[in-house]
Design a protein around this nucleic acid. Structure first.
Length: 364
DNA sequence: TACTTCATCCGCCATA
DNA sequence: CTTATGGCGGATGAAG
């Protein structure tokens, strides 16, 4: 099969697939490269996916099959960038000597190697991260540092470049990594165009609204509406009354309101509450802080107000929300998961997503 | 729960 | 004349 029909100037980018890979780690970054081609109208990147033996695999919990373009032997000699995604199966695969040996050898023959999320564990297992600074999903940062003391783990970074080695944080940070690579290869303008397309897409999907610092700075000088969004997302608990917002942006309230509504279909007030609500949800899920404290931190102000907002928007009280989350993640399913050999954190993540999507409606 | 107070936001219209 | 701006006032609904 001939996957590589672009001009010889194009960078060949290959994404490794394996059974139990995280689908978004694979698709997100590749979409970025694909958009770079599309938006530039040129074949800047030749994109391909491969498995070691060329056979199809299942992603994540086996609800999505992935068919690679080729096997490891089928990869072109001029492979430029090798990408290694994460997934629930990472910890199993990193024990496989055949795999790590292959990875260590192949890494020597490429210009650039990148990892997404806990895919960094695979690079580490192949001995590629020794003496280098790397990023990984924040959940795994400590574990990575423990297993590989000679690797410098940055728990906060969205992505880190250390020579030819690029690594990125959790899932969506893989797209930030791809954007950074595009920027390094073909300039900031193109990377920004790709980012804008991706942002639109992510917003529509209603996914998490966490934008990287990287992106924020790039958008800062584009449209007024983006700036308003970022001011609010930077500090959900800040003073974002119309009056102060308008004053800070040096424009009239009326125009600011109208502009925002016209281009987003949402009023500024709605947007502020939406961000605060999401902030509160995240804090409930990821911390043991008291509801009262979370109310303050999220910008919802008081416990009563937070409760009111939760009831009207989510049909669940803050404590109920937290209880359900804990139940789903610490409940009886644990033994079952361990039997399957999956890492807890991964199922934890999947269940968070299931919960948000499915969320049985509350009874009053 | 009922009540007061206040921010939001949109239609309307004058203005640039 | 068209278009974008922005001030005003009141309906609405949220906060306390």
């Amino acid at each position: 099969m001939n996957v590589y029909q672009s001009p010889p100037t194009a960078h060949v980018v290959a994404m490794l697939l394996y059974d139990g890979v995280a689908a978004s780690d694979v698709a997100g970054p590749l979409e970025c490269f694909g958009l770079a081609n599309y938006l530039s109208g040129r074949s800047l990147y030749q994109i391909c996916t491969f498995t070691l033996d060329g056979a199809p695999v299942n992603a994540g919990g086996a609800w999505l099959g992935l068919a690679p373009n080729c096997s490891a032997e089928g990869l072109p000699a001029n492979l430029h960038t090798l990408l290694v995604p994460g997934g629930p199966a990472v910890f199993k695969i990193s024990q496989d000597p055949a795999f790590t040996r292959w990875l260590a050898a192949r890494a020597n023959t490429v210009e650039r190697i990148g990892s997404i999320c806990n895919g960094t564990f695979l690079l580490a297992a192949a001995g590629l991260t020794k003496g280098r600074r790397v990023a990984t999903h924040w959940v795994y940062a400590n574990e990575l540092a423990r297993q590989h003391p000679e690797t410098d783990v940055d728990a906060d970074a969205l992505f880190v470049q250390s020579g030819p080695l690029w690594s990125s944080g959790g899932m969506s940070a893989g797209m930030d990594l791809a954007l950074a690579i595009i920027e390094a290869d073909f300039g900031r303008t193109l990377a920004m165009e790709v980012a804008r397309m991706m942002v639109l897409y992510m917003r529509r999907a209603g996914g998490q609204n966490q934008f990287s610092v990287h992106l924020q700075s790039q958008f800062a000088d584009i449209p007024m509406v983006e700036r308003i969004r970022q001011i609010i997302m930077d500090d959900p608990a800040g003073d974002h009354r119309i009056e102060t917002l308008a004053k800070n942006l040096a424009m009239s309230e009326r125009t600011m309101l109208r502009l925002f509504k016209e281009s987003t279909g949402q009023t500024i007030g709605e947007f502020v509450i939406g961000i605060r609500l999401r902030t509160a949800c995240t804090l409930l899920e990821t911390s043991y802080r008291e509801v009262k404290e979370i109310a303050i931190l999220s910008g919802l102000g008081t416990e009563a107000n937070m409760r009111r907002t939760f009831m009207s928007r989510l049909k669940v009280s803050p404590t109920e929300y937290r209880d359900r989350f804990r139940l789903e993640t610490e409940g009886a399913g644990l033994e079952h998961r361990q039997k399957l050999g999956y890492d807890d954190h991964w199922l934890h993540r999947y269940e968070v997503m299931d919960f948000r999507k499915g969320g049985k409606p509350a009874s009053a």
